[in-house]
């Protein structure tokens, strides 16, 4: 298991280097003078330009600049935002809990609904229920979520007035961040009104963000279960005289979960990509909105650092999924 972990970590190193290369290339591929980009709209005088070129190492050969960049990254220095003059890493860490909270809620929604739906569809194969699940999940999978969000806002916020349109919590509440997750922080503070407000703000974005993972998980659970049901060991289990519930619940599901867990892990990437759209739509103060704002403000260090950090999060989660995978699949756990 330890070796397995080490090998997975080893595989991550080149991927991480590759992502840094992409992030590095981002600034250098943009047509135009990097310093003018860094200086933003205000411009720069020639003398200061030459001095900064040297200070920032832009007069060095490209490979040297890249090495310096990696050195800085490893030390946690991801540059400074042009707009706020804050270190990019700090900005990211401040905003990340909001995205984390939204993503967790979306994933919870997707798993809690998707797993049972997929299992039911597979067990009741060919019935109306099965076709309904297939139909809904295919629609969900095909959904342009930015439009889906608009529709939900139109219905629940504009027409019915049930949920707020934007933000994480109503303005009258101030909650001292402890974990950064508002649902937990409000409870820690014992402020149930604030908690309710946070929940009401969270529901719609979480549903929007969870829609595609929900569809994918339901589909994957169904097809994985159908695949496993055809296996020899399922026939053996039935030949033992086990009840259908036990055959599915104990013998089939455990094996079917292996690909499903993988898919859930892969959805983290989709989730973060979806967060860009969802957060923009709901004015959710997370990293997705921050990235789009940074692009629109031409805040390139923020974009560069943000992309690197998001990719790192995705890689980390994938690593976690691999470990989890080893836990539920004895063949991997015992691999030498």
């Amino acid at each position: 298991m330890l070796l397995f972990l080490l090998r997975r970590l080893g595989l991550l190193v080149p991927t991480f280097l590759g992502v840094t290369a992409i992030a590095f290339a981002l600034i250098h591929l943009i047509p135009g003078d990097p310093l003018e980009l860094l200086a933003g709209e205000r411009g720069i005088d020639p003398e200061r330009h030459a001095r900064m070129l040297h200070e920032l190492g832009f007069d060095q050969p490209l490979w040297r600049q890249y090495l310096d960049y990696i050195g800085a990254v490893v030390q946690g220095n991801l540059g400074t935002s042009l707009i706020t003059r804050q270190p990019v890493l700090d900005e990211f860490m401040t905003l990340f809990p909001a995205t984390l909270e939204l993503s967790l809620a979306a994933m919870l929604f997707a798993v809690l609904l998707g797993l049972p739906a997929g299992i039911l569809a597979a067990v009741k194969r060919g019935t109306v229920l099965d076709h309904t699940v297939i139909g809904i999940s295919l629609t969900g999978y095909s959904m342009p979520i930015f439009w889906w969000a608009l529709l939900l806002i139109l219905l629940f916020s504009v027409q019915l007035g049930w949920t707020p349109v934007s933000g994480r919590i109503a303005v009258e509440f101030y909650i001292e961040p402890v974990t950064g997750l508002l649902l937990i922080d409000t409870l820690l503070a014992g402020d149930y009104e604030a908690f309710r407000s946070a929940v009401r703000h969270l529901i719609l974005p979480a549903i929007v963000l969870g829609t595609i993972p929900l569809a994918v998980i339901a589909r994957m659970t169904r097809s994985a279960l159908l695949e496993v049901i055809r296996e020899d060991y399922i026939r053996v289990a039935r030949a033992k005289g086990l009840s259908p519930l036990r055959v599915i619940g104990v013998h089939a599901l455990r094996n079917a979960l292996i690909p499903v867990v993988t898919v859930i892990g892969l959805q983290v990437g989709t989730l973060l990509a979806g967060a860009i759209l969802t957060e923009t739509l709901f004015a959710w103060p997370g990293i997705g909105k921050w990235l789009i704002d940074s692009i629109n403000r031409r805040d390139y260090p923020a974009v560069q650092g943000g992309i690197l950090l998001v990719a790192s999060v995705v890689m980390l989660v994938n690593l976690l999924v691999d470990l989890l995978y080893g836990l539920i699949n004895p063949r991997i756990r015992h691999a030498h």
Partner: peptide
């Protein structure tokens, strides 16, 4: 395959946004 792994490590929309940003 390493190159493809790197591309896959980035969420698709994010990578697309990065490329468009450039």
């Amino acid at each position: 395959m390493r190159l493809m792994d790197i591309l896959l490590a980035l969420p698709s929309l994010l990578l697309a946004i990065a490329i468009v940003a450039v």
